[in-house]
Write a protein that binds this DNA or RNA. Structure first.
Lengths: 230, 230
DNA sequence: ACACTAATGGCACTCGATGCCAAAATGGAA
DNA sequence: TTCCATTTTGGCATCGAGTGCCATTAGTGT
């Protein structure tokens, strides 16, 4: 689903971490995540650094086999601090996903109004999942981790919900309905279904990915249409 | 998604608990769940009793506000024992869901071969979610809990996966494909998408549920078709 | 009564997560 | 420079889910 703007090298380069750290979408709770201001003590680490440390450990000990303490040690900060940057261990692999939702919204709005709604949504989803070849390997690893680790698979629905919402809102706007109405909701759910199927197929393929993610999403979409029309 | 065969009264009557307790689908691990055999010490409780106790507490303290210790006390058994009946706290609300999958499989097989695949699947899903009026209120409460509690919402994907698999296998068989191929997978994902949308709409409606679940699923399905054809 | 079998439940322990708070660390003002 | 307001850090205690271990209990069959 994701689509991290620029380059996001996983183990060696820089992690997503775009723009100055923003406030969490799931507002006011216990500790307030760092937001590198002018005044006050500067942050001891960054999302990027934490994710790099975490993925390094995940690669060797697996997700479940890596404790938060270990990640903290690897990142050179206190465990307590990690929990200020990420609400939970499960949130680490997703990184700054929220950030990309604005981009997704923009992509949908870019679609010409002449296009039928379903086609516009489809195009938006495809574009959202198209990115430079050099950003693909790390993205692939990230998604593989997420889609093959049960805990993460489960946790991800909470992320998907925000993503679906973007679609539901777009469809609602274009069909004069409310985002909570049945059709917009179905559109969101089905778009997610398509994407997930596509990702699973994508991850199954040999690394010499002949068909890219966009192509597979296209294929899943046309597959759905032919399936539904017998 | 579910469909517990007979009567399954939530707070007052009997919980699902059909058939003699079977082995867990996710096989051999730590403690082996009870399977009331002839020999040996008899079980101190049952899935039904545990679920009743649990739901009683969930109703007053909420899901998160209810500890496993509390459930154990309410059910009159040790905490350790509860964990032998359910792999996790999150598994309690779903009850013996696995059991219903065989029934689902049977429903699909019942569909006439003359019916187009998508129609057969649709019918199967609809039938799966049709049940006696007196079983509805508790089912509704159960699903409301599951679909409105983030932890449960997330955890449920693991259950849904098995359910989707049933569809993927059916579609694969009828289209001479493999269950892991793109189209069967998409069919499973999309059927789930439809069902979830329908459930959400169903739960939103006032209790005087004019349209039942089957009708809403139908509506979601036709909605999808018209959405996809502009 | 005795052996066999299988579930129970207490205990200790790991790990994720949270509240609390004193101790950094920084920029700006006196 | 020193003090101050500000903001993050990280240690500590605590809670709750989940697991391994194992002696105990409660049946069945002989």
């Amino acid at each position: 689903m994701p689509k991290w703007k620029g380059r996001n090298v996983l183990t060696s380069g820089a992690m997503p971490d775009p723009l100055p750290d923003a406030a969490p979408t799931t507002a006011a709770e216990g500790p307030t995540p760092p937001r590198s201001s002018a005044r006050g003590r500067p942050g001891a680490t960054s999302h990027a650094a934490i994710e790099q440390a975490a993925f390094r450990l995940f690669a060797t000990h697996g997700f479940a086999g890596t404790t938060m303490e270990a990640i903290a040690r690897e990142a050179g900060v206190g465990k307590r601090t990690i929990f200020r940057y990420y609400q939970s261990k499960n949130d680490i692999p997703w990184g700054q996903f929220d950030r990309t939702l604005d981009h997704f919204r923009a992509l949908l709005d870019e679609q010409p109004d002449g296009l039928p709604v379903h086609a516009a949504v489809h195009q938006g989803v495809v574009e959202f999942n198209r990115f430079p070849a050099d950003a693909e390997p790390p993205h692939r690893e990230r998604m593989r981790l997420i889609l093959t680790t049960p805990e993460l698979q489960a946790h991800s629905v909470l992320r998907y919900a925000e993503w679906r919402r973007v679609i539901a809102e777009y469809v609602a706007r274009r069909t004069q309905a409310r985002p909570d109405d049945l059709i917009p909701q179905v559109a969101g759910h089905v778009s997610l279904a398509i994407s997930l199927s596509a990702y699973e197929a994508w991850l199954t393929e040999p690394d010499a990915e002949t068909p890219g993610l966009p192509e597979i999403i296209d294929r899943a979409m046309t597959g759905l249409r032919s399936y539904l029309t017998g």
